[in-house]
Design a protein around this nucleic acid. Structure first.
Length: 587
RNA sequence: GGCCUCGUAGUUCAAUGGAUAGAACGGCCCUCUCCUAAAGGGCAAAUACAGGUUCGAUUCCUGUCGGGGCUACCA
């Protein structure tokens, strides 16, 4: 059990003793890690929170609680400020926690009490278009959430819902037939397809007749024309091959690649069903679902004023021309995931601008009686230097491939400079771990909802609050263990470590919190709390490393410090694994 | 117009309603005979504005100003 929970239980007992039935059953007994060491290690606000409804003085009530608790093994308590109960954990208790943690492969992290089947939908690039920086957020955040959810004991299914059936295929098909240079296609399929798309797109703006021809190609494809289907399949295959290369480099993998086209046959029956059940109806020739969730302006995010009348913004599921849309496919996809995967939860890692779309989808499912934990895990936009979102429509943005290559190159320059004696092969491996780690960590250490400005130097920075800083702390530990006979994994403690130095205590304080931090990530799907925890841990380790000699200390102090290093290494490795970042043993 | 969202050091980002608002980069000082200096230790520097709720507000509510997004047949 985490320290947080242990202390919380103590408080609960005390409050029951004091209040009996007067204790509201829903009362959350919060115990938090203190933000400042002056106030101890953990703190609770219950006294202040309850004082008002009990008509008691918060400070006096806090004293009552502490008196009722009496002496506890774990910590000393004191009342401070307006009624905080501060806990100062006894070093011996920290040491005991570290001892039990070091014998646990999960490092104290409990699995979830209610394991679920969770489908996570992320990345989802379009066919025939390369991934650009805009895909970084969904891809990296989604992958980390999948890793964490899995580690917590859930059954996780990752699904790359690629855009393989959009209207862009009209242009691509036309371009394939009129513009394609086969030799270029061999060399770099995705870039060539993108160029074809861009050229045709430009051409369509000039010549209306080309646009018409493109539309005709799309209709042919959709009605099952053999030639067009073959080209379409080839495009998907080429794209997928190219994408897999990038995903491999990023060490990100999907259980399924069920793109939009997979659901084609399900769309017509779905619309039919929704109409028969009275959920969808025709409006202006299109088939729409008008959400019934809200009806008053101000409360309804889907209401819009049209011709002076308030009316709902519908989710259109069939166009007047009979075509289906994004919303239709998403409904069919959700059905499939419930039916085939038996999903309890479906998480969509998709940008914040699509907020309304998902509200509509989830609302329609509610109207149909489909239940589940559906979440739109939104994230902010990546902005250009001008603070405006990249306009992906023009295709003028930075490709993900370029970001990755540049990152590895920059890291490579530093490795060669810092560690010229290493074999070239190993230098290259380190450059990969450092470069890709830097990209991932830069993404994961931000609050997912904030917009941020794309900046090469920031995303690829190698000093400061970055992956290499964390990797370096691990490397320092490996370096210590290279000079002893044991590997850090082989360390087994006979007794709890000794914590005398401030730096040792601080490290201990952070190490035991790993078990509190990991489950908290999924409460709000925020990987950045893990990233910032790991950064803090690495910082604490670096301080410890400067202040406390390990190999040059003696006796039980040496053993104890070795144990602290070993445990730090294991927490770093597990934590970075949850973030999908590789830790090199030297750099 | 309506709805959503954001506004924090020079810059880029943090902060489940908690105590003296954290970092990083940049700037200015120190520290390699010592387990890797991709490091450590210091200094200066910020909550857009005005009200309200609360013992306590960067966080919740209202308004103003300013950015961005969405607002029926693209995905």
């Amino acid at each position: 059990m985490t320290i947080q929970k242990t202390l919380s239980r103590h408080l609960q007992t005390a409050l029951k003793n004091l209040l009996g039935d007067a204790l509201p059953p829903t009362c959350k007994i919060g115990v938090d890690a203190a933000q400042d060491l002056r106030y101890g290690d953990y703190q609770s606000n219950v006294a202040m929170a309850l004082a008002r409804s009990l008509q008691k003085n918060p400070r006096a009530f806090a004293e009552e609680i502490v008196r009722n608790l009496g002496e506890i093994d774990e910590a000393e308590m004191e009342i401070a400020g307006p009624g905080f109960i501060n806990f100062r954990i006894r070093p011996a208790y920290f040491a005991r926690k570290l001892f039990s943690m070091s014998g646990d492969p999960r490092l104290g992290v409990a699995t979830t009490e209610h394991p679920q089947t969770i489908v996570i939908d992320f990345s989802a690039p379009n066919v025939a278009k390369p991934m650009h920086v805009g895909h970084i957020r969904s891809t990296i955040i989604g992958d980390t959430l999948a890793r964490v959810a899995r580690f917590m004991g859930n059954k996780v299914i990752t699904d790359n819902h690629i855009g393989d059936w959009g209207t862009q295929f009209g242009m691509i098909l036309w371009g394939w037939k009129h513009k394609l240079q086969p030799e270029l296609l061999e060399k770099d399929p995705i870039a060539t397809l993108l160029q074809v798309y861009k050229d045709v797109n430009a051409l369509c703006k000039e010549k209306a007749e080309t646009l018409e021809e493109c539309k005709a190609e799309l209709v042919k494809l959709q009605s099952g024309d053999t030639e067009n289907l073959a080209i379409w399949k080839r495009c998907i295959q080429l794209t997928r091959t190219g994408l897999e290369k990038i995903y491999d480099r990023l060490d990100i993998h999907f259980d399924y690649w069920l793109g939009e086209s997979f659901y084609n046959d399900a769309l017509a029956p779905l619309v039919q069903d929704l109409m028969e059940r009275g959920i969808a109806r025709e409006s202006d020739g299109a088939v729409c679902v008008f959400s019934d969730g809200f009806h008053k302006p101000q409360q309804d995010p889907f209401l819009v004023s049209k011709d002076g009348q308030w009316q709902a913004v519908p989710a259109i599921i069939r166009k007047a021309d009979g075509g289906f849309l994004y919303a239709t496919t998403d409904l069919a996809t959700l059905d499939y995931r419930i039916r085939q995967f038996h999903a309890d939860a479906i998480w969509y890692v998709v940008g914040a601008p699509q907020d309304k779309h998902f509200k509509q989808i989830f609302d329609i499912e509610r109207m149909r009686g489909v239940t589940g934990d559906f979440r739109h895990i939104a994230f902010g936009s990546i902005l250009g230097k001008d603070r405006r979102p990249f306009k992906t429509r023009d295709g003028e943005t930075v490709s993900l491939q370029d970001v990755i290559s540049e990152a590895i190159e920059r890291a490579g320059r530093v490795v060669r400079e810092k560690n010229p004696s290493l074999p070239e092969e190993e230098q290259e491996k380190i450059a990969q771990a450092v470069g890709i780690g830097a990209i991932k960590f830069a993404e994961l250490s931000q609050n997912r909802l904030s917009d941020y400005i794309f900046d090469w130097d920031k995303m690829l920075a190698l000093t400061g609050d970055t992956a290499p800083y964390l990797q370096n702390s691990f490397v320092r530990i490996c370096s210590i263990f290279r000079k002893t006979n044991t590997h850090f994994d082989a360390i087994t403690l006979d007794s709890p470590p000794i914590l005398r130095h401030d730096a040792e205590m601080q490290l201990a304080r952070l190490l035991v919190r790993f078990a509190e931090v990991v489950p908290a990530i999924l409460e709000d799907c925020r990987p950045n709390i893990l990233a910032s925890y790991l950064y803090e841990l690495a910082r604490s380790f670096h301080s410890f490393y400067e202040a406390c000699p390990v190999l040059r200390s003696e006796g039980e102090e040496r053993e104890s410090r070795l144990a602290l290093c070993a445990l730090t290494a294991r927490v770093l490795r597990r934590g970075m694994d949850l973030l999908g970042i590789t830790l090199p043993e030297r750099m």
